[in-house]
Design a protein around this nucleic acid. Sequence first.
DNA 1: ATCGTAATAGAACAATCGTTCTCTTCGGCG
DNA 2: CGCCGAAGAGAACGATTGTTCTATTACGAT
Lengths: 198, 198
Amino acid sequence: MEGVSSIVAAPRKTSEARERLLSIASELFYREGIHGVGMDRVLAEAHVTRATMYRHFPGKEALVVAYLEREDADIRSRFTDAEQQVPDDATGTDRVDALIALIADDIERHHTRGCPFINAAAEFPDASSDVRRVVRRHREWFRDSLRSMLEGAGVAEPDEVAGSLVMLRDAALVGGYLDGVEVARPAFVATARLVAHR
Amino acid sequence: MEGVSSIVAAPRKTSEARERLLSIASELFYREGIHGVGMDRVLAEAHVTRATMYRHFPGKEALVVAYLEREDADIRSRFTDAEQQVPDDATGTDRVDALIALIADDIERHHTRGCPFINAAAEFPDASSDVRRVVRRHREWFRDSLRSMLEGAGVAEPDEVAGSLVMLRDAALVGGYLDGVEVARPAFVATARLVAHR
DNA sequence: ATCGTAATAGAACAATCGTTCTCTTCGGCG
DNA sequence: CGCCGAAGAGAACGATTGTTCTATTACGAT
């Protein structure tokens, strides 16, 4: 195994083991559901011991929250990155189409098992739990960020259109999982275009 | 096997205990998630003993399947009932609007915790499981039934519109749960109208 | 050299998971 | 009447749940 060999290995502020743990946990929670994956499984596959895990996280739910927060951060950076790559002379229509394609690509590439937040919420019925708090925060960010993008693209009634696009993305994520991308993607793109370019 | 003993409409108790069991299980599974509710809890609240439960169902998953099948049947009958109440002289536009209102009402009245099928699928990642089979069947029925209704209402391109409405209902169910009906309902109705009456 | 932190290793915890078992009781029908 | 199936009551199963514990090793900073 690694660790002993490299001498110049940096002390890593963010604990090598913690990273392995969170990374494996994220994959397992997403692919197989949260209650469906036990800590034993996570620890075994991450090659991390219980003591180490409980030093980094107070419990399983905290690990779930960390998983969702990382997912949230990943999506945010993917969106802001892509936003900055849009040329300044792009028309409003181009911007909207790019946004729609961006959402579709994100679903196709990173979310074949549906929406991590919707799925997590299905398993955590307590609306006051930390998990649901993260879900709410993510959704608020997405709606707000969408509205300001649409506003920037000169879309009339950006509030209403943002509301519609939030719905359509939710549906595309669900549909991509349950019906397949080949069905969900074209339906999403066509409907989103129709709604945004009215 | 079941007895064909009696000639005159067998009293078919439909087993009082079985009904209690399935009814309580459905409510608990929907409201708190499937893996989140143990059999002990179900049996205690339904006042049914383990032996009785295992005589009616081979195991927990079979109970889950029964819960989803009942949900499917309930939704189907609600839709066909409402469909028959539309007057014969209703215009295509009226029919479509009635359909949209019907979907919105169903969500507001019976599905404040989201879509039972989407939620169940989040907890059952195995696409070949019985649970996922029921989910697929329900979604296929809904899409087909929507398409034929739209066709009957004289909507152009009923296939595309049906696809859009399936998406929007998924989103409205999810949004009703996570964002609240007061946000989700108007967004759904407005977007659905826009899409269907283009 | 020593202290503190991080990680490993593994035993053990009570609680709950879904499931199977035996034994008794009830109620309707032949 | 006797019979049989449905339901109740409850003990018990092994497995797994999430969590806590002690003991040991490695490495960097003081």
